[in-house]
Amino acid sequence: MTKKILEERITSNQKIAEGIFRMTIYSPEIAQNCTPGQFVNLYPRGRHTLLPRPISLCKIEDEHITLVYGVVGQGTQEFSEYTQGQELRVSTPQGNGFDIGPSLSEKMSKFTVKREGEVPTLGRSELEAGRQMTLVGGGLGVPSLVALAKALITQGHHIRVICGFRTEPYLIEEFEALGISLYVTTDSGDYGFKGTVMDYICAHPFASDYYYACGPKPMLRELAAYCREKQVPVQVSMEERMGCGYGACLGCVCNTQRGYKKVCSEGPVFLGEEVDWYA
């Protein structure tokens, strides 16, 4: 009995872009026991919207967590109407976050690909301090990179963030505050480079020792193929429609080289090489 559903207080909930909200929750219990790339389940109050909404952690502070979410349906619409001081039902952190080096898990360090032409096994050396790390985000995949970038800086890495949006960027100031190299793309060209993050990466070749990514599946698939070609490891945070959000229902699965894995409890972060992109 180590997981819980908590009733926590919202300290702010504001619109930061069209259809995009940033919510901060006071919760020492979550903030002190989570890692970048993990998510929490938010439970709508509405009796007709039954299922939890999994939202990734954007910022992790001493006693607060910040979540950035898009209003995409009735549940997230309800969250957007919550105000400061209100309480909401939120789970303790779920899933495995990004692997950021010193805590490199056994699972990942031992991972080997059995197909031809695979990238080298993800080794500890790639994650030693002072490496050039590239973080790639698309849309609502961008928020989880904020906490990740902050954690990687603490590890002494050089960080480059490339994030793509449809028309309107958000969280730019968060990355700028970290003093890292930031490249923004928009599909519409309204801001930054016109095109997708992959268009940008292909048009502006650069050297990178390691990649992390969160975003739509086609973006992750393209990036995984790119990293494979460059023989560079990439960790991808996968998204899937979830049921319980804690590993009981087998609703959200990702096809991997070793069969279906549960995105909520065995992911959401996988190695790019581990995912069977064309299944």
Partner: peptide, 8 residues
């Protein structure tokens, strides 16, 4: 193996 996603 089960079905492909989305399953829910």
């Amino acid at each position: 193996e089960g079905n492909k996603t989305p399953r829910i």
